[in-house]
């Protein structure tokens, strides 16, 4: 198995509205893959289709060589997911959610150890609703790590974090890469994408308008830095003309 994630000719519509059009993505084992695009470009829908939380209209998805809908129980022993908005029951404490989460897997990492690594050990008995934004995001990484996953999906993981917390998260992700974990992330921060991602796809109105490395993206555009490059690819026609 070479590719952890393999998406072929994926199409998805809501009613008459085509949300994803002929998407092809392959992510090698151990790679960090970045999915970029404006709000509403179809990023979260694409993640839903890959994970099987939404059915695709056409095309195929294979995760660790498995079908995410047919082989759900087996597959998700090895997948860690952080959705854009991770939800939890009211009044639940940090350790309770961690404990519930680890009980779902045949093999799981020690959540206490993970909480300690992310500086949350002291917060074990705090209601999640009382954590700060950064602490919550870190907790959601911990939750995604509990299954000791081979592949992680992180949807806007660092949104709302202060610069220091973002750096900490980056470091954590780089450590995970060294352990050989494949990471599929969605981000709006170009510095982050540039620093972390081996490969990116830029989604625009349901189409992939760029697929490759950050360096290739910059080289193939008239821009010099990556943020401008991203805007050039993803922007509206008016922006293109002005450049």
């Amino acid at each position: 198995m070479k590719n952890a994630i393999e998406v072929k000719q994926l199409t998805k519509s809501f009613g008459n509205h085509l949300v994803l059009d002929n998407i092809n993505i392959s992510v090698k084992n151990g790679e960090i893959f970045g999915l970029l695009g404006e709000n509403g470009a179809g990023k979260s829908t694409l993640i839903d289709c890959i994970l099987g939380t939404k059915k695709v209209d056409n095309g195929t998805v294979s995760l660790l060589d498995m079908n995410p809908i047919r082989e759900r129980k087996k597959l998700f022993e090895n997948i860690g997911v952080q959705f854009q908005e991770t939800k939890y029951p009211d009044k639940i404490l940090v350790y309770e959610l961690c404990k519930e989460t680890s009980s779902l897997y045949k093999k799981s990492l020690d959540y206490k150890e993970l909480l300690r690594n992310f500086g949350l050990y002291e917060k074990m008995k705090t209601p999640i609703s009382e954590l700060s934004g950064g602490q919550k995001q870190k907790l959601f990484i911990v939750l995604a790590l509990i299954p000791n996953p081979k592949v992680m999906f992180l949807d806007e993981l660092t949104t709302g974090l202060d610069p220091k917390a973002r750096r900490e998260v980056w470091k954590a992700l780089q450590n995970l890469r060294e352990q050989g974990i494949t990471i599929f992330l969605v981000s709006h921060y170009m510095d982050e994408v540039q620093k972390l991602c081996d490969k990116i796809a830029i989604l625009k109105k349901g189409n992939i308008c760029f697929y490759g490395t950050v360096k290739e993206a910059i080289n193939q555009s008239p821009c010099e830095n990556f943020e401008d490059t991203y805007l050039w690819y993803s922007g509206e026609e008016e922006t293109n003309e002005s450049i």
């Binding site: 939380t53 129980k73 022993e77 939800k87 029951p89 989460t101 779902l104 897997y105 299954p147």
Partner: peptide, 17 residues
Amino acid sequence: GYREQKILKRLKVTPIS
């Protein structure tokens, strides 16, 4: 409520039945 708050969605991407 669990469905609406997407708690069930989070559980769907785990091996839970």
